[in-house]
């Protein structure tokens, strides 16, 4: 799975680069607009090390933010499942808050928390939290009538059991949503770094943009792609292992 995911990413990346080169050589654009293969190679050689560290830094914050979001979304969705009113209230709040552009909210966060780890973590969590929450509320609010009916008629149903049944029956959906939101956590962290942090690959991209250095950005995108692919594969593997374990019980 890992190998497949990596070579699929390579294909997409190389297609993108090929398109840029096609444009460059067809329109005879200078290296300022689109860098030459030689410049990209040299930039990759010079910056792969520091950029790799920056990507790992970003990835670590993204994973933390993602975990935080999963825990919070699970807790809120379990609460939201209790009554239709609470569920609909949380949904409305989630839709509204999600509609605020993060670039407008970020300055407030940075004023309150400074430009350190806490702000990056919060923004990463905010970006991937609401999609997670909405899916989780949907999953945990939907009764699995066939199974729940038995426990309800025998009066053995507890809230924990209800959550377990709904999670077990929708484990595939939950895994898909969690894997899908992982990329959003990564994007959230990069956006946070781009806006105000002083570390991570988002910060490096910002500096490269100031210097109009597309070669650096292409190297950064390559490493972000690899980092994200690795994280997604890790999550998918964990999800599959969990599904297998649950089925074997």
């Amino acid at each position: 799975m890992l190998l497949r995911r990596i070579y699929q990413f390579f294909i997409i990346y190389l297609l993108g680069i090929a398109l840029l080169f096609a444009l460059k050589y067809t329109l005879r654009l200078s290296d300022y607009v689109i860098p030459s293969p030689d410049e990209i190679w040299r930039t990759g050689r010079d910056y792969a090390g520091p950029y790799l560290l920056a990507v790992l830094n970003t990835l670590a914050v993204a994973i933390l933010g993602h975990l935080l979001s999963i825990c919070l979304a699970t807790a809120v969705a379990v609460l939201g499942r209790l009554t239709a009113w609470v569920g609909s209230f949380i949904r409305t709040a989630a839709y509204n808050i999600q509609a605020y552009p993060i670039v407008a909210v970020a300055p407030i966060i940075f004023i309150l928390l400074g430009d350190g780890l806490a702000s990056r973590l919060l923004i990463a969590a905010m970006i991937c939290y609401f999609p997670l929450l909405l899916s989780f509320i949907g999953i945990f609010s939907e009764p699995v009538s066939d199974i729940e009916h038995f426990y309800e008629s025998t009066r053995r149903m507890t809230w924990r059991l209800q959550v377990k049944i709904r999670a077990f029956e929708n484990i595939h959906k939950l895994t898909t949503v969690i894997v899908g939101s992982a990329t959003m956590a990564m994007v959230g962290t990069i956006v946070a770094e781009f806006i105000a942090a002083t570390a991570g690959i988002g910060y490096s991209i910002r500096i490269a943009l100031y210097q109009s250095d597309l070669a650096k950005i292409l190297v950064a995108l390559f490493l972000i792609g690899i980092g994200t692919s690795l994280y997604l594969v890790g999550l998918e593997r964990a999800g599959n292992a969990l599904q297998k374990r649950l089925k074997s019980i």
Binding site: L27, L29, S30, Y32, V33, P35
Partner: peptide, 28 residues
Amino acid sequence: LKELELGYAQFGVASADQVFRAVAKGAP
């Protein structure tokens, strides 16, 4: 500067550092 080269604009405003970075990479 990129827009000039791509033909989206015929004139533009840029600071000297932008101009030098572009010219150093062959921008006309």
